[in-house]
Design a protein around this nucleic acid. Structure first.
Lengths: 228, 228
DNA sequence: CTCTGCTATCTTGTATACAAAACGGTGATT
DNA sequence: AATCACCGTTTTGTATACAAGATAGCAGAG
């Protein structure tokens, strides 16, 4: 009934603009520190400044950009430490999803979860990280939904989305796909077994690892920079 | 250094408008279902529609109002079940704050926490629920900050703020103040002892109770309505 | 009498115009 | 030569004007 992605009557320009700009931010087209000139964006998208401003305000209130009064909008420098903080919170949110899912998951959702899991397995076997990455999103989304807490689903999804670029960095780390899948397996087992504490712990660890990988990566980059 | 309330260079009108409107929503001046007419608000605040729109968009992206394209902004009917979901998430966020605080709190923050706690005690002894309510906010904020995760502080603060009206409902429930203070005591003890698991559990319970109280209240109201 | 279709009005969404503040550059002074 | 002050330019913030979609009321048909 509800199609997963719906933009039916998204009549509002600013909505679309917001998504476009967000896309450019998370994909690195607008790297941190970029100044977002309203007129420039307006010209680029062929609209006036008004919808651009509305889009920027919306992005700002989600934390994706920073608007300082009278000084314009900029893509914030997201200090690595802050990203780690976000992973820390994400780990807890996912753990919570897992805990609730283990207790509340319905038979239908069990099937959906296993299906998503098997799809990941196929991507692993095919050694296609990009596909795995996408299916991984679905897998986690299934767990969110199984928590039967719509507010939690929204919060978790939002943060997950915001962390996407940093997770993407680790895509091709050695064996990451296989390791990730094994962790998924343990998570699925725990949830289906109804062991909420175990599911929470597994998910927390699964996400925490991602945060640590990110920290490792940053540290490596820093050393690289210092050494050059 | 940082004064608790600061609006130093809040040059942007929409910022101020947003706070004003938010205040009216959470205090019930604009009850759920209210239609927020842009022109009306503009006239009321003596500004044009532009800043009003910006304020509304900001509120919408935080979830405080709902904007349906071409159909205006309304204060959403927040179904009781959704509020319960929010309390469920809040409990976990606070638990996380407690867990981290127990591990990371600094001596200075220990003092600040105890100070806030003693202030609550005074309010309890004076039997002044309104004062206790305010000091309770400070107390929880202290714990947030002691987590040393600024992102978490932001998230927790935002949700805490959003749940304010529902927490307020329980202010004068019998013995609530005394019970709350006792729970606070256990939380403080756990944090100062450095027992992160205990601190998390205590805080989770402390918040969960609030959610349950709210559910009780709703159920009571429903029965009352049905019986009348 | 009810239901449907049209129209008038109102409200939202977007564009443009105007005011004020911040930024940059130039020139004078020490 | 360096620093500070002043002025012009640029950009944000707000107001107004205009276009298009939605709502409500009325009239006519069944």
């Amino acid at each position: 009934m509800n199609s997963p992605i719906e933009t039916p009557a998204a009549t509002r320009q600013s909505e679309r603009l917001g998504e476009q700009i967000e896309e450019r931010i998370v994909t690195g087209v607008y790297p941190p520190g970029t100044r977002l000139d309203e007129q420039e964006l307006a010209d680029m998208f062929g609209v006036s400044r008004t919808p651009v401003r509305e889009a920027l305000i919306q992005l700002a209130s989600v934390g994706l950009i920073e608007i300082r009064p009278r000084r314009g909008a900029t893509v914030p420098e997201v200090g690595a430490d802050r990203v780690c903080e976000m992973f820390e919170v994400m780990a807890e949110l996912e753990a919570m999803c897992g805990r609730l899912a283990a207790r509340r998951i319905t038979p239908g959702e069990q099937c959906a979860l296993q299906e998503a899991h098997r799809a990941c397995e196929a991507a692993r076997d095919a050694n296609t990280p990009d596909v795995y990455y996408q299916l991984n999103e679905v897998f986690h989304q299934r767990i969110y939904e199984a928590s039967h807490n719509s507010f939690l689903v929204e919060q978790a999804s939002a943060l997950h989305r915001r962390l996407r670029p940093y997770r993407r960095l680790q895509l091709r780390v050695r064996n990451r796909m296989a390791t990730s899948f094994n962790e998924h397996q343990a998570i699925v087992d725990a949830i289906l077994k109804g062991d909420s504490d175990l599911a929470a712990a597994q998910l927390r660890a699964h996400v925490t690892v991602q945060g640590e990988r990110f920290a490792d990566l940053v540290a490596t980059l820093r050393d690289f920079k210092a050494g050059s």
